[in-house]
Write a protein that binds this DNA or RNA. Structure first.
Lengths: 106, 106
DNA sequence: AGCATCTGCAACCTCCTAGTTGCGCGTTTG
DNA sequence: CAAACGCGCAACTAGGAGGTTGCAGATGCT
């Protein structure tokens, strides 16, 4: 759909954020599992998971006839780094976070 | 356009991120100022600024016949908190950030 | 006053996105 | 083997987002 690793674009949709929350709560899940409990179809969930995978936020792994998705929060670190960079000179709290990110990403 | 304070939705557009970067670089700017140097019209920039304002990321202040925009990065803190909450149990680096956020927001 | 800016509002267009349905293929299980 | 389950792909539709043009209302400068 688009393989640009746009993390913010992937997080823009509330459904995708809900999916990430569910994934991080348990030990991964399949598309059909996630679809039960959401008011959308399995294919819609699969599309969202595809977008998340394109952004590098989830990792798809085949297990037999199932497709298990697990969250890979590494890109979140980049997004956090960008945000702290923006707000560094305007907000002391974010500036402190920026320093932490800088130190840990080195 | 929508007054829902969707921070991620506001940050999804590359143009809006560029606007935020420019705003945080200087001491605020007007829509016409920002439009020069971008390949879009002033009205498009104004719309983007309106979205950013709806998300609480910029503050619009009238100065005579000008409209000066300044960044207000407070919502970025919430976004960072959400991200760290997601990745906390999957990534040690983000867990550390989560602790920092928790401590500073109390 | 008169003109040049700067802004905001409204209508319009185009394209992408979220969602649906339908179908075919691989993988279990009885 | 055959039936059932899970998945992916393709076509289609509706609605929203980004962008443009045009115009009217304030404000500043000479």
């Amino acid at each position: 759909m688009s393989d640009a690793p746009d993390v913010f674009g992937a997080l823009a949709d509330p459904t995708r954020r809900a999916l990430l929350e569910r994934l991080s709560a348990g030990d991964g899940a399949t598309a059909t599992e996630l679809a039960t409990g959401l008011p959308i179809t399995r294919q819609a969930v699969a599309k969202h998971l595809s977008v998340l995978a394109g952004a590098g936020l989830v990792d798809a792994r085949r297990q037999g006839r199932e497709m298990r998705y697990r969250p890979t929060p590494a890109p979140l670190g980049d997004a956090v780094a960008w945000m702290t960079g923006i707000g560094a000179e305007w907000d002391e709290r974010l500036a402190a976070l920026a320093r932490t990110v800088q130190r840990r990403r080195a």
